[in-house]
Design a protein around this nucleic acid. Structure first.
Lengths: 193, 193
DNA sequence: TCTTATACGGAGACACTCTCCGTTTTATTC
DNA sequence: GAATAAAACGGAGAGTGTCTCCGTATAAGA
């Protein structure tokens, strides 16, 4: 038997591999932005001047790629949650963060399908990037519940899914306003009677 | 120049065409139920013992087929709305119908992607079947607003989109309860302060 | 029965996903 | 600055799906 290093976990990529990874991410961002979350992966590989095999080796599934592309955006959302939780009243923090969530979707319409995946079923996806969003909204709701201002029986993710539902399917140009109004409705409806 | 009959509008289908249409619809319902809204159309044609061309002639797009398959379901929802509006208090009618909406999605999970389309952007789809759902929820909201019990600035479709957001993405087995709780939150949040 | 408008079917062009494996490039060792 | 092994690349190709085109079949009407 050969001796193995324990925990090879995050191996360092070779220089060319790293280069390609970046190029793929750039091409993917452009591709998703232009053609939505179901843009052709081969096309993205082509634009990145990389073989299809290379793309799939780096990102085995479409979700993995989508996730990598929007990881930074999602990380920002998570960071802001920590900020808000420290500096604001619980309910206001929740409201403010949800409004920000709308803005993020507005700014990057493409993030919507990605978040759809994150909010959705797949447990694997949930673990990594998705976990950040989950933890953010859950921390906010937990805080607001603890303060006694909102009902204890509300499911944090459901609030987000509701907002997402309005934002992503949205057709009319005034959807951000409508989404924000919905946030108000949700917050108000969530208050202890 | 040849003389044309004016308004050939809804031509009567030939007997075999009608037969095939029914078979396609049956196969499509089975297919969508089993494999979701992105089931293979060629596969459906095969199951219906019909050429691909025939399927596409009857239903030029996937949406058209989806719409035709769930038209009856949607019609039921519309009928119930009229019923509720006559026999119940405005706000209760709205609440009851939304709860029923959740049940419909629960019963026919496949309807979810279809409704997603109906609630979504495409104006064409909006006109036909989609219009029924739209009109139903809008009538209910209008009634409740007129009675002075809920805010005038809420968008009817948004309520539905919110519920849909929770219902469709739902992973956990308790999603119907959660969806219904959300209906309560939405109704309560929509009340005049 | 004959005619013709209507409808059918499935081969085939094109697109997309994903894998496999021979070739190339990088890092390391001497 | 070779030589060597490990790592990574690329793209052909198999599998699957979408949608169209047009020669063939069939229903409806005279």
């Amino acid at each position: 038997m050969t001796v193995k290093k324990s925990k090879p976990a995050a191996r360092t990529l070779r220089a060319d591999a790293l280069r390609n990874r970046e190029r793929i991410l750039a091409a993917a961002k452009a591709g998703f932005t232009k053609n939505g979350a179901d843009a052709s992966l081969d096309e993205i590989a082509r634009r990145a001047k990389v073989g299809a095999g290379t793309l799939y080796r780096h990102f085995p599934t479409r979700e993995a790629l989508l996730e990598a592309v929007y990881q930074t955006e999602v990380e920002k959302l998570a960071a802001v949650q920590r900020e808000f939780s420290k500096t604001m009243e619980p309910v206001e923090a929740l409201r403010a963060w949800m409004l920000l969530f709308v803005d993020y979707i507005a700014a990057k319409q493409i993030i919507a399908p990605a978040l759809y995946t994150l909010l959705g079923a797949s447990p694997k996806v949930f673990q990594s990037t998705g976990g950040l969003v989950t933890r953010a909204i859950e921390a906010l709701v937990a805080g607001a519940v603890a303060s006694g201002e909102i009902r204890a029986d509300i499911n944090a993710m459901d609030l987000l899914r509701a907002v997402y539902g309005v934002s992503s399917v949205a057709s009319a140009p005034d959807w951000p306003q409508r989404a924000k109004r919905l946030v108000d409705i949700l917050i108000h409806g969530s208050r202890v009677r």
